[in-house]
Amino acid sequence: MELAVVIVVAVLLAALCGLGAFAVRRRLIQRAGGTFDCSARLRIPVPVVPVGDPPPVDPDAPLPSGSAPAPASADNGGQGWVFGIGRYNHDSVEWFRVFSYAPRPRKVLKRSRIEVLHRRTPQGQEELALLSNAVVLTCLHAGEPVELAMSEDALTGFLAWLEAAPPGQRVNVA
């Protein structure tokens, strides 16, 4: 009986330490300032194509400049979204996963390589996968499609940051 109590207490302490580590990590990320809640979908799902139509495009192939990825179907529209924190750092946005212990960002988006294609409201299952009142921004970063979901306020700040690029930098904001 005493062994069971010791094991339960040890498991609870380990869980509390894990949650505390998440809180400390988030505080360290936000310490420098310039952070915002930002979900990301780094791999955009390929829509389901009925039999007889041409095969779907390879999702790992880069898109030609100025083209948008095909919209996700209702079957997989909510998949692939990961909660995260964006942090402005000079001429880039660092994106950290919320539920990770990694001290480094998962993705770094350079301002000069971001091309905004369009924005939209979450559709279908995306409404359940994202924070409420989120706006989805479809972008190309170095030729690779990426979708970011953030609040209207964060979106305004993000677009203003993109447009405030130093003279001579190419900026494409839709």
Rank of each mutant, 00 (worst) to 15 (best):
L63E: 09
H90M: 05
P71N: 10
R106H: 10
R43Q: 11
R97H: 07
A23M: 14
F83N: 01
D37C: 10
P122F: 01
G80N: 13
L128G: 10
A4L: 14
L137F: 06
V51L: 04
G143M: 08
D153Q: 15
V171S: 08
R26C: 03
Q123S: 14
L128E: 08
C17Q: 13
M150H: 09
V48D: 13
H90C: 05
L162C: 04
L117A: 05
P166G: 11
M1T: 10
F158T: 02
D153W: 12
V135G: 00
V173T: 09
N133D: 15
H118G: 03
V24L: 11
L128A: 10
G143L: 07
L162V: 05
E2K: 10
R119I: 04
A164Q: 09
P103R: 08
L131W: 08
R87T: 12
G52Q: 08
F96D: 04
R31S: 12
A129W: 00
H141P: 06
K110G: 09
P56F: 00
I114S: 02
D75M: 02
G18D: 03
G124K: 05
A174V: 05
L16S: 14
V82M: 13
E147H: 12
D53N: 08
F158W: 11
L131T: 12
N172G: 05
I7Y: 01
